[in-house]
Simulated scan of single mutants.
Amino acid sequence: MNKKCLVEKVAERTGFMKKDVEVMTDALLDSIAQTLAKNEKVQFVGFGTFEVRTRAARQCKNPRTGEMIKIGATKNPAFKAGKNLKKAIETR
């Protein structure tokens, strides 16, 4: 499902106009991104938690040349599913 389909489904279920749902969806996603950028968690009880995970710096071998290269530490967004979401997926 893409954003357009999500907006359509929410508009159908709520009776709101698609334009309004799109504005709310954009605001929600932007708020999540801004919170993660501050290295804070976003938790929806029962649904799941968005968080930032840090991957340590490491050395790898370039498969083409065999040369060892350094890869710097990175921060990546992660999602951990909550109890209700896991249950909903298992029952379908």
Results as ranks from 00 to 15, higher is better:
N76S: 12
T14M: 10
V7K: 02
D26L: 01
I69F: 10
T74N: 03
D26Y: 05
L36I: 13
R13Y: 02
P63M: 06
K41S: 10
K86S: 03
T54C: 00
K61P: 04
K80R: 14
F50H: 06
R64W: 01
P63S: 03
L85Y: 13
C60G: 15
D30I: 00
G15K: 08
V52Q: 07
E40K: 14
K83H: 03
L28A: 07
T74R: 13
K38V: 00
Q43M: 10
A57F: 00
P63G: 04
E12H: 12
A73T: 11
V52S: 05
G66N: 12
K38H: 11
K19G: 03
L6H: 04
A57Q: 07
N76L: 14
N2P: 03
G82P: 08
L28F: 13
A78K: 10
K70R: 09
R92P: 00
R55G: 04
I71M: 13
A33I: 09
K3D: 06
K70G: 04
V10C: 02
A27M: 04
N76M: 14
R58A: 01
V21I: 12
V42M: 05
K9R: 11
V10Q: 02
T25E: 07
T91Q: 15
N76P: 01
K80C: 08
R92T: 13
R64Y: 08
G66L: 10
E51N: 10
V7E: 03
S31L: 08
T35P: 05
V10W: 01
P77N: 09
N62T: 15
D26A: 13
M17E: 11
G72K: 08
M1C: 00
E67S: 01
I71K: 14
C60I: 14
R53W: 07
D30Y: 04
F79I: 11
V52M: 12
A11W: 06
M1G: 08
G48P: 07
T25L: 15
M68P: 03
K61V: 15
G48N: 10
V21Y: 03
T91L: 12
R58K: 12
I71D: 08
N62V: 08
K41A: 11
A37Q: 12
V10D: 00
